[in-house]
């Protein structure tokens, strides 16, 4: 994961506002360990029996869910999980967007198929605008040998196709919960 300078408090605040405006839920944790605890409680609230996770979010799987983990390789498995646990590589403050440098279809499945998507984002990975993260995206897409795909996800799946009324969760997750690891806020608290 590419890390820039830690995002200023202003950016983190803006990210949070914009993500929430797009329909995402944002929970802040001070440390990775606290994030794991927060994730555990989110999954417990859901009563999740199985969760799907790709390799890059492995470190955030709460201990008690390790036995109930499916990997995303098989789309059906991801689809049958109650939640997907993923790691976002960047956040874009201006639009409340999560950026994932896809490395396999499995990763994309976990982001897309379960009804709830729990995404971990470190505050230091928040940038201001899409343009600020373009070098990393471009680099990821450049390699002819790599998987070469990138996903930008903003809020849950939505449609307004019937009578222009907004509905959530049509084909992708109906809930997007962002667990934001923000060490500075953690210290203040």
């Amino acid at each position: 994961m590419v890390r820039g300078k830690r995002a200023g408090a202003g950016l983190v605040k803006l990210f949070r506002e914009r993500a929430e405006a797009a329909g995402a839920e944002v929970r802040t944790s001070a440390t990775p360990a606290a994030a794991r605890t927060a994730i555990a409680s989110i999954l417990e609230e859901l009563g999740a029996q199985t969760i799907a996770s790709a390799a890059d979010a492995k470190a955030f799987v709460p201990a008690k869910f390790r036995a109930r983990l499916v990997r995303g390789d098989k789309a059906e498995d991801s689809a049958s999980a109650e939640a997907g646990l993923v790691l976002a590589h960047f956040g874009i403050a201006e639009t409340g967007t999560l950026v994932h440098l896809d490395r396999s279809d499995a990763g994309k499945n976990v982001w897309t198929l379960p009804p709830v998507c729990v995404a971990v984002l470190e505050a230091c990975a928040i940038v201001g605008r899409l343009e600020d993260v373009l070098p990393a995206i471009t680099k990821h897409l450049a390699s002819p040998s790599g998987f070469g795909q990138v996903s930008l996800v903003t809020g849950p799946s939505r449609t307004a196709d019937i009578e222009n009324v907004l509905s959530i969760g049509v084909h992708g997750p109906g809930r997007l919960v962002i667990v934001l690891i923000d060490t500075i806020i953690g210290k203040k608290a």
Partner: peptide
Amino acid sequence: AALLLRLLPRNATGQVFTSYVSFIAGAGDH
């Protein structure tokens, strides 16, 4: 492309950004 994406959702549906934007360069597994 980023310039296009700055305008497209805002002008199309009045969204700051669209829920899913995929860049698909590599063929991946298929």
